[in-house]
Design a protein around this nucleic acid. Structure first.
Lengths: 229, 229
DNA sequence: TCAAAAGTGTTCTTGATACACCCATGC
DNA sequence: GCATGGGTGTATCAAGAACACTTTTGA
């Protein structure tokens, strides 16, 4: 049953920039397009927003359908509305970015989707539409946000070492950090709980494992606490 | 000539939260709705996005049409997509916020629009749709952004005193600031140019007028300079 | 001469930075 | 026993916070 409108309407889509940390590199999940336009090119997972679903729901649904990801950290990024960004017709896209723990999701992502692949942000293939712009903005946002909100933990497994955490920040921010200062600061927040476990990974001293205390963070946040770097 | 689509599409609108500084208060420009739904209620200026115009262009056009404002600082805020946010049909709105110098625009705004009025953010009337949410988010964004980007000057006249600037920050952030520390810091950036003018305003010592050196800021920014508080 | 806002420096405290060595383990 | 990353403390420096009095003007 086709719908009729007096004026032409833009189509509405969502697109997702999915970040993951893999082998010490920051990566993004891309889909190879099966259809024109840009057939065969790599693109962000995404698709049309249904009339009876919120934008967030559409973003989550598309992620699930195209990549098998569920229960990820997801946040709206920006809405892209250049007139010719899609060669077929006017399409406005609400972009999201997501942070996933590859430990959870690596397996699923591989099986479900037709052709989904992780690419290091530093070596992306050519992207369809204006998706390169979207990725660039997502990266800037991630770099900004990671400094004053503890979202980095969304990229790590539930149990991690301080070195894991430091490398995460170094990769995202593109800087080197001093080990002692980093540890002093991050432990100073009192949001990392040392576990009764260590992690062995090669012929050297095993590393203490920690988890992030999200509950405590929420409580502190309400009292005006500020996580920074 | 009506358009036909296979699936129902959401309508796309833009809405603008226009901030202005008036009589030492932070205010927002609202429009009284002439039509249902929410007839008679106050709402953000905004309207439908045309098929051949960018989102930014739509936001500027609506501001001009409904409030007479042009050439204002304008930045995308967030896109609101709750399913029932408009009782008639599905409407997704890309929200913007704008900063205007009342010195420039007060006159125009008064004449052009049917019923536009400035309301202090602390005493807003009941708003149509989910516009109260949009305003709340805009305020949060403004408070965040004003700390690390020199956008406050968009709310001041081209020539201003340091007290004007300090009061602006105090009003936006809702805090009191120490006069000496504030001046030390803000002058330390070297972005305020003292003019050969003073401003008399009552029976006390006249105040030095400054202008913000936007060119110099742009150059510094490219070299990694960081404006902060 | 008084009221009212403009303008100005110093001390103290806090947080950021710089920096080098010992520890536990696997091979 | 050696290579590898894990783990720790202190001294210095810079920036932020606290704080009070003099200046200029109009009435």
């Amino acid at each position: 049953m086709p719908h009729t409108y007096q004026y032409a309407r833009a189509a509405l889509t969502v697109d997702g920039v999915v970040f993951g940390l893999d082998a010490g590199e920051l990566k993004i999940l891309l889909i190879q397009r099966a259809l024109e336009p840009f057939k065969g090119k790599w693109a962000l997972p995404g698709g049309f927003v249904h009339v009876e679903e919120t934008l967030d729901a559409a973003a989550r649904r598309e992620l699930a359908e195209e990549t098998g990801l569920a229960d990820v950290f997801l946040e709206q990024l920006y809405t892209f509305g250049a007139v010719k960004r899609d060669p077929r017709e006017r399409v406005v896209s609400v972009a999201y970015y997501a942070l996933v723990k590859l430990s959870d999701h690596a397996a699923k992502a591989a099986t479900d989707a037709a052709k989904a692949e992780w690419f290091p942000v530093s070596r992306l293939p050519q992207l369809a539409f204006d998706h390169a712009d979207i990725v660039a903005l997502a990266l800037t946002r991630l770099q900004g946000k990671v400094r004053y909100q503890p979202i980095g933990f969304e990229l790590l497994p539930p149990k991690f070492t301080l070195s894991d955490l430091q490398h995460l920040y170094e990769v995202i921010l593109g800087t080197e950090l001093d080990k002692r200062n980093f540890r002093k600061k991050v432990l100073g927040f009192g949001l990392l709980v040392p576990l009764n476990e260590t992690q062995m990974s090669g012929r050297h001293r095993p590393a203490q494992l920690f988890r992030f205390d999200a509950d405590k963070y929420e409580k502190l946040k309400k009292r005006g606490f500020n996580f920074e770097l």
